[in-house]
Design a protein around this nucleic acid. Structure first.
Lengths: 321, 321
DNA sequence: TTGAAAGCGCTACCAC
DNA sequence: GTGGTAGCGCTTTCAA
């Protein structure tokens, strides 16, 4: 590369990085650029960050379960916003790694920031990451972790909204679907807890209803429905709501007359069901906001960790409740 | 690190990598491991791959639109399988980069392999990646790219199956939904083409039906339905099928009597609709297979690019067609 | 069995 | 303006 352009490696570096502290003559610049194009030269990120002592890589774990349109959108926005701030977002496929195992795997890449959705990060993991040079560690989850910034996605609020809504509508024996699928506990547990909190001190009862995302499981639950004596159900989200509502209807139960149903996530599909599905609309933080938090934290790593509540939950009342 | 253990950096490297060519005494090993734990030592991936001249990183672009459960599952399997083979899967969030722009951004990370779903890779991009040390470039998309391995996901087959099925069932005026959302053309175009191919040489007609994923758009299309004079529709996938089917039913049209509807992807939701939605079940390659292809290509980079057809499409006939 | 040292590609400092 | 060069953290060869 330097040879082809007939200049030194240093000059190449200056030209390609537009180093402002050094002025390079136009002809030389051109020669360098031409040589770079001709050779298909691509800088070596590893060497660069080794030398610089830091990178502009923001690392997140790749989600290990299907994510809905809500989260996809959020992720897209976030990548876009961080991209504008000149960070590179990288999702690390760390299947099967947990706790500080995972943290170490991520630390090997020496990211400048780590974004951790869910609740898979322990304080030890944060320490590992920080010690390895991460200037910002941000969790997006149910609770804050010592030493890390936290965007509290308080799924209790989702359950609370649903519970309060059902109670307002006069329901008193309330079921709450708890998915049996792995990886969903960190959402389903707080949602259940939120319903409990909403109904605490009232005469209403709350019943947890384990349900797998399969017709058979739903049919089984529906068959026991009359015996359970429930008059309302918060179905975890719109998809489980559809599954359960269908099973209830097949069982001859009327929605909402016999049983009110409410979902969550405000998916398109809820609007298409009959009766139209009531739901809890969830508002995620904007990607831009989070990107700014990351950038702030990176520029000022000494600052105390910020903790924000960022999950808006509002009931969208339609026909099923 | 080396200082704390009282040994040389080399010894540390031997111990932590279990280098078999060198035998280190037990006491020394212990001392090194203890020091590593105490310091929270994490190796520096960049330095390692810089020295080694290659990495074990398999890079994919992060999907830029919501992906369904099918693809999520596939991705998870793939990460698992590659993890077992000791590769690290990394999804690069390269929003807004195209063609060889994107390829250069990926090449900076010097991945040992690149997996590119969709059709966003040009031959030039392949060259860039290979020149920068990628030993395997694999596309998963509608067509092969010069110089890269290809897993042909022939979405024409999906459309073909749907078209043939509708024709068999006696339908002759067939609509095909084409989503208006960005990023879906690379799937929708071949699916439409497949329907055309299935009906080529018959007396059936094929009509492309642009549709946005919104109730209003569907209602508009449904309002024009009788004028269009169609007796069947392949709705791109199950979600668009649900949207359109609901709009048709609201318009007073009977499914399947007046209009047959078939979707694709075999989602749970199709089974829950009434009438139950016919669909094209799509079989993606197993993650394990793809992982093995990658590994083979990495070990033997000289070999000629392989091209496999890997997308199985089979009609699941339910009640809507 | 262990240590010394070279060098991967890059940038930043200093000398010319 | 440009080139020489040290050194980021690591592995690996060679020597002790």
């Amino acid at each position: 590369m330097a040879r082809l352009a007939g200049v030194s490696r240093a000059t190449v570096s200056y030209v390609l990085n537009n180093t402002s502290a050094v002025r390079i003559s136009e002809p030389t610049r051109r020669r360098v650029h031409e040589a770079a194009k001709e050779l298909g030269y691509v800088p070596h990120a590893a060497a660069r960050s080794l030398r610089a002592g830091h990178s502009r890589m923001v690392l997140m774990p790749a989600p290990s379960f299907p994510v809905g349109p809500l989260y996809s959108q959020f992720l897209g926005d976030l990548q876009m916003a961080l991209g504008r701030l000149d960070y590179t977002v990288v999702q690390h496929g760390s299947v099967g790694l947990h706790g500080d195992e995972a943290a170490r795997a991520w630390a090997e890449l020496r990211p400048v920031a780590v974004l951790m959705p869910g609740s898979g990060l322990c304080p030890k993991g944060v320490t590992v990451l920080k010690r390895s040079g991460a200037r910002a560690v941000v969790t997006l989850g149910p609770e804050a972790v010592e030493g890390a910034h936290a965007l509290l996605m308080d799924h209790e609020a989702v359950g609370y909204s649903a519970g309060a809504h059902l109670h307002e509508r006069g329901r008193r024996r309330i079921g709450v679907v708890v998915p049996e699928e792995d990886g969903l506990e960190s959402f389903s547990a707080p949602r259940l807890e939120g319903v409990r909190r909403a109904l605490h001190g009232t005469d209403a009862t709350v019943t947890a209803l384990p349900l797998a995302y399969e017709e058979k499981s739903a049919a089984g639950l529906a068959a026991r429905w009359r015996a359970l004596g429930l008059d309302a159900v918060f179905a975890y989200n719109d998809e489980y709501a559809m599954l359960l509502m269908r099973a209830l209807q097949d069982e001859g139960l009327r929605v909402p007359t016999d049983t009110a149903v409410i979902g969550a996530d405000d998916l398109m599909l809820g609007r298409l069901l009959r009766p139209r599905l009531s739901t809890v609309h969830i508002e995620l933080p904007s990607g831009r906001e989070l990107a700014e938090l990351v950038d702030r934290a990176v520029r000022n790593p000494g600052a105390a960790p910020e903790t924000h509540k960022v999950l808006g939950a509002s009931v969208v009342h339609r026909e099923s409740s």
